[in-house]
Design a protein around this nucleic acid. Structure first.
Lengths: 331, 331
DNA sequence: CCATATATGACAATCGTTTGTTATTATTTA
DNA sequence: TAAATAATAACAAACGATTGTCATATATGG
């Protein structure tokens, strides 16, 4: 790899001048600019970002910590975040914590060790103290973090309300809600909250099913759901905390001979691509993933620049009616 | 952020000694080791990887260039690659080229500029010349690259053969194959090759449907398939180059009133999670994604270490029979 | 007690880039 | 023609860690 020095020698200039040209500072003649251009092309010169980063004491890399990559919601989110980061000139250091505390902790250290400019933390489990003293901006998504970090969420509670209202308006009398991991508190718990409130308002009872970390990680909810449906056979409406769970519910219903939507209505969450690939297609709560990603990167960008930044950003969700709640099959 | 110097001062030692302790070289006393340990903890010291990288002239980062993140096959692949990289002490710099040549080129430059230790290139479009002189190891996955780079693929051709044989053994007489992007050559084209040969051997005709880049990027194949099924109404067996396409085909069939598997058998490719979330569940060709990822990272690791490395690695595929080819619904 | 092994200090170079300072020239401009 | 501006050279320090070379100081063993 050619260095600045090589370019300078090739162009017959000093490193100072070449560096100044690259960074557009001070006096520069067109002549010099051209000579440098030619030399750079000839030597196939690429500035060494590592050296640059060392000097300016920060990289243009964002550490992205997620609990999952394969999960459709996160792959969607990662994709959008990568997009936005690229737009703003940032790179993504991808860290899959698998929602294991130790891995998350280690990845945080890896991020700081690698001098990332900032961290975007998606739905993790690590305690907030770890972020107290790291001295770089952190944006959380779908994640509580008590200290000074900014968070981006969708209106989870409203999503729960919408789901409940829809199921109730469909005439469901016995609801089942497949919620989050019981042992971890996260903003997505608000879905349950909203669901509960709406149910209580209408006097409709519902059973809340807590999931376990193991299921979250394996993305396999089939057994859990089958068991619950056996235990609560009167269930005629189900609200799942993700489309993935809802899709698996469909499979379980089929196995058990429960016809959707006739005997059971189902509503998912996220509105990822599988939602429209199931049969029947999933009614779901749409999360504005793209907008959330854009806002997250913008917040981080501003935060890195030392600007003050919104402490909490909540984006609206909306109900997308497809077929699992009896949408007119007229297509 | 505390530096080595700070730690040394805190521990009452010199930077030389501390550095030697951190890197386990030369003579070190337990006493000194402890003092450094205490100082590190007290100062919350993290070695600056940027400085380290600059010195050793290489990072422990792998550039991962993919044409997609949201696509289930790639998110699966990315997840496995991240896993493997982590195991071996590498970090992942995630680059989504969106199969745009310019972006791919730029990302290659970004990778080299950031002194990555190596690159894993998934199914890209850029011409191989770009990789000629970059001087770092490159492993390709599902991607041809004529020059000295190593590649990891699944046995695409065999996959095509298996699919054809299955459809034919199911009694299909008029086959449709939804293939790759017409304008780009890639190993996945071999699926078509295998499919063709098996069909010809049995004297069964098939129509090959080329897809377009636009579809690949939007992941929306519905229109294309609907059109084809209208044009070739006698079709009774379909082999799609991905589960995503196959899943969309199921939706199209439903809209058109074609009953699967009775009137039409469908086989996908990849065996990603959606394959078992559709109704009926997809029969598909299983790619050993995990093993491919593991081998890719191992190859890159060896390649970085200067070892000689297999030029081409082809892993076996297998047919996974589910419901779209009439698997006994006895579950 | 001398030789060897062990442990550390003190210093400096290096990785590649940025940036500041001072000096030196060439070109304008008043 | 003196003064101001423009363009570059020549050096060197800095970013933080690694590593090499000596020098020095104990400790251990034969």
């Amino acid at each position: 790899m050619a260095t600045l020095k090589d370019v300078a020698k090739e162009a017959g200039l000093t490193t100072s001048t070449v560096s100044r040209i690259l960074n557009n500072r001070g006096y520069i003649s067109d002549n010099a600019r051209q000579k440098v251009d030619v030399a750079m092309k000839k030597l196939n010169y690429q500035p060494n970002e590592v050296a640059r980063s060392l000097h300016r004491k920060s990289t243009n890399t964002i550490g992205l910590i997620v609990p999952h990559i394969r999960h459709p919601y996160f792959s969607e989110m990662i994709s959008n975040l990568e997009d936005q980061a690229y737009e703003k000139g940032y790179r993504i250091l991808l860290c899959n914590s698998q929602s294991i505390q130790e891995k998350e902790t280690e990845y945080i250290n890896i991020c700081t060790g690698n001098q990332v400019a900032g961290i975007i933390l998606c739905s993790g489990t690590v305690s907030m103290e770890l972020f107290e003293g790291i001295g770089i901006p952190v944006i959380t998504m779908e994640r509580f973090l008590g200290n000074g970090t900014a968070s981006v969420e969708c209106d989870n509670k409203q999503g729960g309300v919408l789901a409940a209202q829809k199921l109730i308006s469909c005439g469901c009398k016995n609801l089942l809600h497949v919620g989050n991991i019981g042992t971890i508190t996260m903003p997505a718990d608000q879905r349950t909250e909203g669901f509960r409130e709406a149910c209580e308002k209408s006097g409709i009872p519902f059973v809340e099913l807590l999931t376990e970390e193991g299921q979250y990680n394996s993305m396999a909810y089939g057994e859990l759901i089958a068991e619950a449906l056996r235990k609560y056979p009167e269930t005629d409406g189900l609200f799942a905390n993700s489309d993935l769970i809802a899709a698996q519910t469909l499979q379980v219903c089929r196995k058990m001979g429960i016809v959707v939507p006739e005997q059971m209505k189902i509503i998912g969450f996220d509105d990822v691509n599988i939602a429209s690939l199931t049969t029947p297609q999933l009614t779901t709560i749409h999360q504005p993933v793209k907008e959330m990603a854009e806002i997250a990167v913008n917040l981080l960008h501003d935060s890195i620049a030392g600007k003050m930044v919104a402490r909490r950003t909540v984006l609206p969700v909306r109900l997308v009616e497809r077929e699992t709640t009896g949408f007119p099959a007229g297509f």
